[in-house]
Design a protein around this nucleic acid. Structure first.
Lengths: 225, 225
DNA sequence: GGTACGCTTCGGCGCCGGCCGAACCGTCGC
DNA sequence: GCGACGGTTCGGCCGGCGCCGAAGCGTACC
């Protein structure tokens, strides 16, 4: 009889350190082994072993470059699955090991990315503003209205071509506990936010700070936290 | 800093036996501890401990009835998450421990349920037939056509009232490796299949056998395997 | 009441896996 | 060539956890 190796798959994420790696990698960037080691507060040798297991398990893909080895999440489906699991998991307080600086950066950030779209306080506020202005309707999941489409165009967001990926996806935010907007359009909005300097990265994590330019763009729509 | 206890959650499913319990429970039924113990090939005491962990972790809910203790998956969201994880997990062959009878029953079954809708060979064949007859379209996910709605009514399927649950959901079958139909409508179809005697349960698992009545109903639509 | 049975608790065993430091390898820069 | 550094391999330690059987508890049935 054939059965999915659910236990083996779950084992990949059943370790505090490996889970931490995957949550960090939800920012969609490629991290080096030593960055992950520092972030997780473990020795480089330990991080190496964990990364090996995650790659072997198909959760991560690697990309070697000189003496560096970058790893990232396999694809958006993988990221979505990890997010869904993180949502399902109850929240607990964990003692912080490792870099205080990065942590402080994250804690003070106005926003963060969630794989490839905006999340955190900013992501949630934008989602709420778009709902209030009827740029998005929520019958049967989030959908962009014509007014919403115009608004995005006005902001310079390039709408994605139709693809297998759902254009707009509600994504329960595990720090804010409310929904923000993912999907292809969410990613396009985030891309524009970065490209046009509405936000700027803080540290090496997925933390972002809202810039004055971002504030100027979004404030007319009450879309700043 | 607050972080989701992803590792703790994943640990629940990171054990072969517990994962097996959850996959068995995907049939949506409530199982007793001893049924699960037999299914998983472990002692009752071991099964008790596993069930405790799964209940404490919020994956299962229990329902005591006399000297029996029934457990079932918490809700459809939980079931969907487990299914998604099972899809993501690579398939492997596992040696069979435990009851040969149940296994044989499952192996020969024409169909099985997948949480609360039809899956296996029958589920897949019905989904294909509905597609062929244009009862379902697949642009941007599965959607019921007017003709599909008429067809279901003709079969006596009571369409569900709109709810938070998506009416129709494509669900990749982990034994057949193709899609079958879940969601509220998929569940309604399955309910009618059971109520009207198209299928009959085999053993204590989620295995089903197609009845002659079921064959008579579905054959005109080429919807039998 | 007595017996059967489903379930639970407990003690003990064995193994798996996460951790580290030390040594080593390959790349980069001087 | 040589040192610095990112990454890897290896051996060893230790704790956690999954397993069992035995004993105990409560319900159901006669």
């Amino acid at each position: 009889m054939t059965t999915p190796d659910l236990a083996g798959f779950a084992s990949l994420l059943a370790d505090r350190t490996r889970a931490g790696f995957c949550l960090a990698l939800l920012d969609g960037r490629a991290w080096t082994v030593s960055e992950l080691a520092r972030q997780g507060g473990v020795a480089a040798s330990t991080a190496t072993e964990h990364v090996h297991r995650l790659v072997a398990g198909g959760l991560l893909v690697e990309q070697r470059q000189g003496r560096h080895r970058y790893v990232r999440l396999r694809d958006t489906d993988t990221a979505a699955l990890i997010e869904a699991m993180a949502q399902a998991a109850p929240k607990i307080r964990v003692p912080v090991r490792g870099l205080a600086d990065d942590r402080r950066g994250q804690a003070l950030a106005y926003a963060r990315t969630c794989y490839d779209h905006l999340a955190g306080a900013l992501g949630v506020t934008i989602a709420r503003a778009m709902t209030r202005h009827e740029f998005v309707t929520w019958t049967d999941g989030p959908a962009l209205t014509d007014r919403g489409s115009d608004w995005l165009a006005e902001l310079g967001v390039v709408l994605p071509a139709p693809s297998r990926r759902p254009p707009l996806r509600g994504c329960l935010d595990w720090t804010e506990r409310v929904e923000h907007l993912g999907g292809a359009i969410g990613a396009a909005l985030c891309a524009q936010a970065k490209a046009d300097g509405w936000v700027t990265p803080i540290g090496t994590g997925r933390a972002l700070a809202l810039t004055s330019r971002g504030r100027a763009v979004l404030e007319p729509w009450d879309a700043v936290p």
